[in-house]
Design a protein around this nucleic acid. Sequence first.
DNA 1: TTCATTTTTTAACATTTGTAAAATTTTCTT
DNA 2: AAGAAAATTTTACAAATGTTAAAAAATGAA
Lengths: 153, 153
Amino acid sequence: MLIKAGRTERSVYLLEKGVARAFCHKDDKEINFWLGAESNILLSYNSFFLNTPGYENIELLEDSVLYKIPHTALQNLYSTDLELANWGRRLAESELIKVEECFIARQFKTAKECYEDFIKTSPDILQRVQLGHIASYLGISQVTLSRIRAEIR
Amino acid sequence: MLIKAGRTERSVYLLEKGVARAFCHKDDKEINFWLGAESNILLSYNSFFLNTPGYENIELLEDSVLYKIPHTALQNLYSTDLELANWGRRLAESELIKVEECFIARQFKTAKECYEDFIKTSPDILQRVQLGHIASYLGISQVTLSRIRAEIR
DNA sequence: TTCATTTTTTAACATTTGTAAAATTTTCTT
DNA sequence: AAGAAAATTTTACAAATGTTAAAAAATGAA
């Protein structure tokens, strides 16, 4: 477990090697809302940006290599360096586009289409992560995912 | 229609007065993915940030008052003014948190819970916008929304 | 007010997805 | 290789949501 809900997170991590998931708790269940592998940045948006306790958990699903960037270091750079402030802006903007795309896709597409997209965009993660995690990320039950996989096969 | 899909958008708008929706096309249908009223910023993330044709449409649902900010002006400010670059960064970061929350909520919650949240957070919009638009925004059919409303009443 | 139009709700039925449990397959350990 | 454990798929049934069409209610214009 890299980041735990309820704590104020004081670091960002760059995932050099490994696979990770971000999840929340719903009642007694866990729900994944993000999956990613190498070269992704790991942080609780909510906790890191607002500097308050977050509701997000991030777990590494493989032995991993990470770089850790302290919150204070980054904030200092932002407030003194124009280039870096704009780097941070563009980073947030590009993440924003990605999340919005995910949000829209979920509204648009059937579970089957979402899974087919996932296969195309993240075939490596499909191999490295349990199907239960993928089903949770796609917002469907594992049974439904199995049905889709049987249908496509 | 303020912003149309397929065009590269060269402005951001601040909504001083009015209600707007952002939507995409799915086959022959329209799907809303955003609803907002006064004091919101209107832009196609995709088109404005990447300076490429976007897939998003933004329509004003009432007579409105807007302030228009040209892309070039904002980019110039970002690249010369540290304060503004950080303002832009924080803006993107806070939008990012909001969209992520929406995304997670959709995964977590039943249609009924989503509607109840909507009533709490945006009671004004509920009064000003047709239920068909709200159903589309909530990712459900208008029939389902009617059923939920009947159940709550 | 009255009539026409639009919006919302209801009804009936089909489809999708979820849940729980069993069966099967895969993986891991010894 | 054999057995145990974990992961995945399948089955059967229940619940939720979608679609189409009709009914009711609300809105707007003359």
